[in-house]
Amino acid sequence: MDAITGELRPGSADQTPSDPNNYKYELQCHLGGGDFDSVCLRRQIECTNGPDGQEGIPVIWYSMPRGVPGAVWSIHSGPTCLYDAQPEDLLPRIAADIQRQFESLPINAGTLVAQPSPHTLRGAETNFYADAQEQQFDVTMFGQKVHVVATPVQYTWNYGDGTVFGPQPSMGGPLPQERWGEKTRTSHVYAQTGDFQVVLTTSFQGTYSVNDGPPLPIPGQGQFSAPSQAVSVWRSITRNYADDCNVNPRGQGCPGVPSSQ
């Protein structure tokens, strides 16, 4: 945050902000100069529940579009509490460290599903899809309450046979059993038999807010991998027979008859 203008500028100087707005805060009942609204002061929120029990200051957050001639500040959110005697000194530090914090969160990459599973056929389309959800976390950074929202945006599939698909925006989706074997956006054809470990990696985009302030974009994405899932690829053999097991109960493929290779 600029100590003179009060504008909040997340990230380092060499990063281009992806949020179209600038932000600043003002004391909840401040009228400008040394004047305060006495009626507002009687209704002013109490800020006594900060990290480690410290007191905070009640503020209103304002936003203004970047690069728009004649733009003016307007109320964005609040009133809310800001915890620190000099919070403007901490907000740039939080912005500089938020990417590392984001990547260290226990974000669930989602569930990987294969159809059919756990066995599929060589040369056939095996449908894979993911089930990933938005997640929210509350952490403390430099003594401030930080709320993080992580949203899945891209998916990478490592099919275990040397083939990698992604990152791309489709999580895929389930097929009814009668349609198994159809080609889908995220399906894969195995050329060899064997057991393969399939890994889903989900890319999340995040936002963060400090002490219930305005949500700000986290500059980079975080990549998180789901536990690998084993898929066994079998080969299929097709044989034609002149009669069925009612006519010839000793025929190949009938109950109790040993299979031939």
Rank of each mutant, 00 (worst) to 15 (best):
G6Y: 01
E7H: 09
L8N: 01
P10I: 09
G11A: 11
D14N: 15
Q15A: 11
Q15S: 11
Q15E: 12
T16G: 05
P17I: 15
P17W: 08
P17H: 09
S18D: 04
D19F: 06
N21T: 00
N22M: 11
N22K: 12
Y23S: 03
K24I: 06
K24W: 02
Y25M: 07
Y25P: 03
Y25E: 05
E26P: 00
Q28L: 00
C29K: 04
L31K: 15
L31C: 08
L31M: 15
G33L: 10
G33N: 14
G33R: 07
D35S: 12
D37H: 07
D37V: 07
D37A: 12
S38M: 13
I45W: 10
C47R: 02
T48W: 05
T48N: 15
N49C: 01
G50H: 09
G50A: 07
P51R: 08
P51E: 05
D52M: 02
D52N: 13
G53Y: 03
Q54M: 05
Q54G: 02
E55T: 10
E55C: 03
P58W: 01
V59Y: 01
V59M: 03
V59P: 06
I60Y: 00
W61A: 01
Y62Q: 14
Y62T: 04
R66V: 07
R66C: 05
G70A: 10
G70F: 04
A71Q: 14
V72W: 05
W73N: 01
S74E: 15
S77E: 06
G78N: 03
G78L: 02
C81G: 06
C81N: 05
C81R: 01
D84H: 14
Q86K: 10
P87M: 06
P87G: 07
E88Q: 13
L90T: 11
L90M: 09
